[in-house]
Structures are given as C-alpha cells and as structure tokens.
Design a protein around this nucleic acid. Structure first.
Lengths: 209, 209
DNA sequence: AATAGAACCGGACCGTGGTCCGTTTGGGCT
DNA sequence: AGCCCAAACGGACCACGGTCCGGTTCTATT
C-alpha cells in the first residue's frame, strides 16, 4: 500500500479533475474493475447466461452485496460490460475513418452505419439481451444511434418527422428482429443487410417531385 | 361422477375429431382452463409482473408442478394468455370488416393494419414483455403479421425482398421500440403512428420511373 | 496523529422460477 | 365391473437474483 512510487505524490489527487459523482473511493474503484474483469472472463468462458452473480463475486474476491452495490442488478452488470465495446464503436462513428466516420457523403455514411450496427448487434446479441432495458439500451446507446441517424437524414434533406423516421430505421437492427430473421427464418446476414439498405434508400429517396 | 346426463352417451368420444396431440385427459383440460382463468384474474388484479407461479397454482387449486407441466415456464403461461386476444385480433384481420379486414384496397388495409397493430401492442405491452420469446412471439403471432404485410406489399406491386421489407415495416411496432418513443421520449401515440404511416408510404411508393 | 463519520464491504437471508419423483387418477381393454 | 399403465398430479427441493444490516475501511477535519 505504501508504494514508494506513489508515495512522493501529494497523497490523493484532490482536484475533481473530471466530473462524475463526487469521488469514488479507491477500494471501490478497484473492486469495480475487478468485477468487470471477472465478469468478462466468466462470460467468454461459460457464455453469458451461465454466469451467476455469485460466481462473479467469488472470482473477483468480493462479497455478493458489493456486486449489487456497484451495478444495481444483473442487467446493470451486463450493461456495464456492454458499454465498453459500445464506447469504442461510438468513437469510430464520431471520429473514425470514413465511410463510418466523418468524411464520406451522408448516404455512404448511412449505409456504412447500418452494416456496422448490424454486425455489432449480432456479435453482442447475448449480452444485449441479458442487459435488458438497463444501462446501454436505456438512453445511453439508443439515444446516440438515434441522434446520429437523425443527423444523417437531415444532411440528406429528408423531409418529415426525423426523430420518428430515424427510429423506424433503427428498429429493424434490434436484437429480437435480427434474431428472428437470421436464427429462426434462416435468412443469410447479407440478405438482411441488403434489405435494410433497400429500406434506407426508400426512406431517403425524395418524394416524386 | 356417474352423472346420469352423461351416462347415456357411449362413453368417451373415441373419434379423434380434430387433430392435436393424441388426446388430452379430461382433468388435464380442466386444469389448463382453471389455470388460464386464475392467471387472467390475477393479472388484472395485481398487474402482470406481480403474479407469481405459486399464486396461480394456489388459486387454480393445483400443485405448482402442474402449472409448469402445462405451460413450460412463466413465459409460456403468459404467452398462452396472450394467444387468446391475439387470436381474435387475427380473426379480425383475416375476415373482419374493412379496412382492417378484406374489402378495402391494399394501401388502406396496410395503414389500418399499422394503426391496429400499434394499439394492440401498446395495450398488451406488459404481457408481451412477460411472454418473452416464448409462444406467441416465437413464430405464432410474428409469422402471421409478417405474412400478412408481405401479402399486402405484394398486392401493392412493391418490388424487392418482400419478406425482409415486411419485417422492416413490422419492427417499429415492436414493444421495446414503441415504449422507447412513447414512455421514454414522450412522443404522443399519434405522432408515432403518423411516422409509421409515412414510413409505409415511402416503402410502398414506386421507384421514380 | 487522532477522530468522527460516511462510504463501503460481506455474507446470511428471502422470494420466486424451475425441477424431481413418489403417488394418484383417468380411461381403454378384457 | 375390474385391471393396468400411461399420463397427470403435487409439493418438497434447489439455484439464483436481490436485500439487509452489522462490522470494517477510507477520507476529511482538527
């Protein structure tokens, strides 16, 4: 604990450098990280829905209560896990290379967005399902995608109720819909994607003047 | 039990009149019905997700094991409950009065379908959520709506991958999407509906010749 | 450095969904 | 009517998500 390397520092950094809730105690932060790591390991060892909260707690070396203190619920924990990848994906959209990131023309970006979102959703399907309406879905991730699509539609001079239209474009990329098509009906992913691109073009196409 | 009224009959009806699994024992049928009724009563007494399987069993006067034998799981029970209303709705679509039922022109039918589906989904949102992927969602109800929309799109001379396009039209009417817009974002139902109708028109509109 | 108090920790505890298996019941057959 | 077995029953039992509260550890203050 009295590590000579960190000793010279004037103790804890008092400055509330970046916002967030007042401060987080150091042990709390450590435990949060340990839990996240433990959960991640267990997830890709046993599969998402064979991971029990107890197991996560044990592997992280903390009590069960701690898990629930930090992440509210099982859904909350999964949502936290999800946020990690979601965040890097969002970064790619905001400032990554075209055509997903800025630089390409809006229609290209929209199509790239659809493809990327579809793949990402399918890859994390289990996790997303397990996260339920908590965390990511509840306004964090959803509202990001909605805003982005709405912006692109605006750039493309689409007329109409943009927020609602954007939602309509996002809806077919949700887990239950995708799984219905891919897992149950057995449609190839490419076919579903092509369908979505067709949809996008129909939505964007200007009204016959 | 030796009821004189049923006595005269030549015992049980041997003919496998209508298919289904071989036969269902009479007590089994009685219990199924009792459970359904009990569940229904409890649902609109306490609200869907305050209903426990134990409570249903007790109220129906059977053991818990029986509930699970008949309905697999909690989701299964809820799905069974859902199927009742879903069935009468399907009947309205197939053979009810226009514009929902046959008789009106396809575009009117499509718009009527959207409105009706949206209202129904919103009304049964809790139940649908509780039913999860079991029963109704898993192929029973979904495939019906998909087929219907696909048929209407065909009548409207829409070109493209009709099954996928139909799915895309259905997706914004799913519970999570609807709730996001109505409950979270606070959009009025009319606005969401108008947005869907706009979407439908954009999908149907023929490619600029 | 010592103190006070807030935040955190941990694991016993509870309710509910789901399983199991010994027992009962229904109904075709003789 | 009586027999027999498959099917159905029922409730004890288990696992897991979630809560609670007494004890511990950190941080701000003097």
């Amino acid at each position: 604990m009295t590590d000579p390397l960190s000793g010279p520092l004037p103790g804890p950094v008092l400055l509330p450098l970046l916002g967030g809730p007042p401060t987080e105690r150091r042990d709390a932060a450590r435990n949060r990280e340990a839990l996240l790591v433990a959960a991640e390991e267990l997830v890709d060892a046993c599969g998402v829905d064979h991971v029990t909260m107890d197991a996560v707690a044990v592997r992280a070396g903390v009590g069960k209560g701690t898990v629930f203190r930090r992440f509210e619920s099982r859904e909350g924990l999964m949502a936290a896990l999800l946020d990690r990848s979601e965040t890097v994906w969002q970064a790619a959209v905001i400032s990554g290379p075209p055509p997903l990131g800025p630089g390409a023309d809006p229609m290209e970006r929209l199509l790239a967005f659809g493809r990327s979102r579809l793949e990402t959703t399918l890859r994390h399907a289990e996790l997303i399902r397990a996260a339920g309406r908590a965390g990511s879905r509840s306004y964090a991730a959803w509202s990001f995608t909605a805003m982005h699509v709405r912006y692109l539609l605006g750039e493309l001079d689409v007329r109409g109720d943009l927020p609602v239209l954007a939602t309509a474009l996002l809806a077919p990329l949700e887990v239950p819909v995708l799984e219905q098509q891919v897992r149950v009906e057995g449609f190839p992913v490419d076919r579903v994607l092509a369908g979505w691109e067709d949809l996008a073009r129909r939505v964007v196409r200007p009204p016959d003047a």
